[in-house]
Design a protein around this nucleic acid. Structure first.
Length: 435
RNA sequence: GUGUCCGUAGUUCAAUGGUAGAACGUCACCUUGUGGAGGUGAUCACGAGGGUUCGAUUCCCUUCGGACACCCCA
């Protein structure tokens, strides 16, 4: 039986045209991160399984990771997210780093999942984190940067919304104001996370199942519902007016607005998992009703670095995946027309391969990306290859050109052609690149 | 893990219980220094395995792969 030409299930091959888009995305990601002063880092794709276990969810490890034993009997896991890894790196050099540390990375991740739209088993994510700032300023910067990434791809603010919530606020409301115990609060958070996907009666029924009869008599259920339906922070229930998280959220949204990020809004149902986030959390949604999905998000995770047995370091970060981003770009007509990297395709005419080496080399030394056909086929076929590759120019090299040191350059879009010196060719191509 | 749908040339599709066609593509030639048109020719497929059957690409089962939803989403 023949070997399969397909990539492994759930993973993608990046053919050159796919890679071109990928490079475009990475370039934008890098550009924005570096504009905010973030430095790029990377780490191994393999981590010891304990790194993920210590977060406490055995089921995730068993069912949703690529985990195996290496030849030394160690349990290894292909990384499924970057936050534990970057926290490990920060913890490892905590004494010598200059804080605040602003780091970003574009790693590949593997999750053993059932595939569906916008989710494969292999994907890339931009991860950006800031360490060492406990103040709201860090949350502001991260959300502002997440927005800047969307802007860099040409997204209009009405096409996406940034929903913001505070884990601290929700926790203090559930356990403080409503008097739920920790187990109840955890269960309630999971339920709230799904609220937008359920109908109201089903939600209320499940909520009633969580709270005790005496709590129900105290109006716990209806108070929670009232909170969850808060449209804006100005309409927050009275019992939360003094909560400092409310003031922080207000300040955050106000400052975001001042930065021009006008599409950020409070959403009390936003939970964003329930693992390591400790305070502000946010998620960016596609507002298109056809694709009204959460695209990416982030938040504050002040406790994670201390998992390595060192003093905690405050941290805020976000991550956005390449697959969901591509869906967004497609849905909103933001896919760029990408040019091939090759500037010129050399068509050799006659037996001139040897003599053509010198001018070709000169073109490359002057900074052009030059591909030579090399097949010895007739010019027609060579040109067709260049057209198919999407290359902008063809340069003919035959006896005539070599004698005159002027080479016939043909623009494949305009079909115009003219003989030029190598220097002139270089300047024409460099002008073309700028378009 | 559950459910629904789907697998035919490189691609997009068709037909058929009696071993498959087209379009586009690719390659060659018409046209040995010039592409997108046209002509001629060639190339290339029933995902895999098993079952029913005289005979299966077609029906059934399994498996692999794909799409979507649920679950989950770190």
């Amino acid at each position: 039986m023949a070997l399969s030409t397909q990539p492994v299930k759930g993973a993608r091959d990046f053919y050159p045209e796919d890679m071109r888009l990928q490079k475009y995305i990475y370039a934008k990601w890098r550009e924005v991160c570096e504009r905010y002063g973030y430095e790029e880092y990377d780490a191994p794709i393999l981590e010891p399984t304990e790194l993920y276990l210590s977060k406490g969810n055995q089921e995730i490890i068993n069912d949703q990771t690529y985990t195996f034993e290496d030849r030394g009997g160690r349990s290894m896991t292909l990384r499924t997210e970057m936050t534990p890894t970057v926290s490990r790196m920060i913890a490892g050099k905590r004494q010598e780093l200059a804080y605040p540390a602003r780091w970003y990375s574009i790693p590949q991740f593997w999750r053993y999942e059932r595939m569906q739209r916008g989710r494969g088993r292999e994907f890339y994510q931009l991860n950006a984190d800031i360490f060492g700032i406990a103040d709201l300023a860090a949350d502001l910067e991260i959300i502002d940067m997440a927005d800047a990434v969307m802007q860099a791809f040409g997204a209009k603010r009405e096409t996406y919304a940034i929903k913001v919530n505070s884990r601290k606020l929700v926790d203090s409301f559930l356990t403080g104001n409503l008097g739920l115990d920790q187990t109840q609060a955890d269960t309630a958070r999971r339920l709230i996370d799904r609220m937008r996907k359920m109908d109201q009666p089903a939600f209320v029924a499940q909520l009633d199942a969580i709270i005790s009869p005496s709590q129900r008599e105290n109006g716990v259920g209806s108070r929670l519902l009232q909170f969850l339906e808060t449209p804006t922070l100005n309409e927050i229930p009275e019992e939360l007016l003094g909560n400092e998280s409310v003031a922080e959220l207000k300040l955050l949204l106000e400052k975001l607005g001042n930065n021009g990020v006008t599409n950020a809004q409070f959403d009390p149902t936003l939970m964003r998992g329930f693992d390591y986030y400790t305070d502000i959390a946010f998620e960016v949604f596609d507002t298109d009703p056809e694709n009204n999905r959460s695209m990416f998000g982030g938040g504050r995770y002040d406790g994670l670095v201390s998992m390595f047995g060192v003093e905690p370091i405050p941290a805020v970060g976000f991550a956005m995946g390449d697959i969901t981003l591509k869906l967004f770009l497609e849905a909103h007509g933001l896919m760029p027309a990408l040019m091939p990297e090759t500037d010129i395709y050399i068509v050799l005419i006659g037996e001139v391969a040897d003599k053509a080496q010198a001018p070709i080399k000169q073109l490359r030394e002057m900074g052009l990306n030059v591909a030579v056909d090399q097949t010895g086929r007739k010019p027609e076929s060579q040109i067709k290859t260049a057209v198919k590759k999407g290359i902008g120019y063809v340069l003919f090299i035959g006896e005539r050109e070599l004698e005159e040191s002027k080479f016939m350059l043909k623009n494949l879009h305009s079909k115009e052609e003219e003989a030029h010196s190598l220097e002139r060719i270089v300047s024409i191509i460099k002008d073309y690149r700028k378009q």
